[in-house]
Design a binder for these strands. Structure first.
Ligand code: FES
Ligand code: FES
Lengths: 144, 144
DNA sequence: TCTTAAAAGGATAAAAATGTCCGAAATAGA
DNA sequence: TCTATTTCGGACATTTTTATCCTTTTAAGA
């Protein structure tokens, strides 16, 4: 469904959000440990998320990653997914035609569009902070 | 959503289904032309679909690919997808945890499961022959 | 039997995704 | 100012996916 990079990106953002809600800044190593991901690869993904204004970073001693109150309030899963995987998942044809086209649809268009739109709605309406709350309550987990 | 191989596999099967409904057997070249896919790569995918009993093949002059009446009656999209992409899309965790686990769920589990199950239901209830009918009526297309 | 047409299957190549390494830049604190 | 710590960013390596090439197998028809 999502690329590995995107899965790591979402998990990392959720960990940062949870810690930011508690007033804590987290380092790259902390994050990679918390979500069980390769450190250097995670660094690349976090850079993308900083550029996309999903998270905020600070260099130097006591530096690390955090989310501003504004980011915590506004960021949805859809922002992370489009920053990393692009919008093919929202707009692409399920059978791989160059573009999804209502006027010249593929045989699966109607059925696929229904599922794809449900996915898009879910991603656009789900906020990072609400998911982070479940983590804090100990109801959900970022690794197994 | 699906791999390139799976997209080609579905498009190829739909083309074969449509031609089989009209009593025609089709060659690899015909298929690759009809769905605008690389010939040799398509051959590999068709082999997988023959092994999975989704389509039937005949070697030699006048050989090619076809679907038996039994296949036309029974094959669903879900068979093609699991033959080529496996069942990760049906059972995998949306955030990439090793397994989707109700007892130790990821933060997105509830929302993701809802979408994933809708996708699975759609693939399991959509038959290849009903989609092929739309092609025959000229309402839908396999390339642009 | 011989030729020809077609899929089957193995080996290889190219491209993309995933993952690693290392030096540069920034910054806090001694 | 100097040192230590941390992200940034470029280059490189590995793995997976996508794609190609070529030989073998099968079978129809002359
Ligand atoms: S044309 Fe294929 S999903 Fe719209
Ligand atoms: S645990 Fe992640 S989708 Fe079920």
């Amino acid at each position: 469904m999502f690329s590995k990079a995107c899965e790591y990106g979402i998990r990392a953002t959720l960990h940062i959000a949870r810690q930011s809600q508690g007033g804590h800044r987290v380092s790259l190593k902390d994050i990679a440990g918390a979500i069980d991901s390769p450190v250097a690869f995670t660094a690349k993904i976090l850079q993308q998320l900083v550029h996309a204004n999903v998270i905020h970073s600070l260099k130097g001693p006591h530096g690390g990653f955090e989310m501003t109150p504004h980011q915590l309030h506004n960021v949805r899963l859809s922002h992370i997914v489009s920053a990393i995987d692009g919008d093919q998942i929202y707009r692409g044809c399920g059978l791989g035609l160059k573009a999804c086209n209502e006027l010249k649809p593929c045989p699966l268009h109607d059925q696929f569009k229904d599922v794809r739109d449900k996915l898009q709605l879910m991603l656009e309406t789900t906020s990072v902070s609400e998911l982070a709350a479940g983590l804090t309550e100990g109801l959900t987990f970022l690794k197994q």
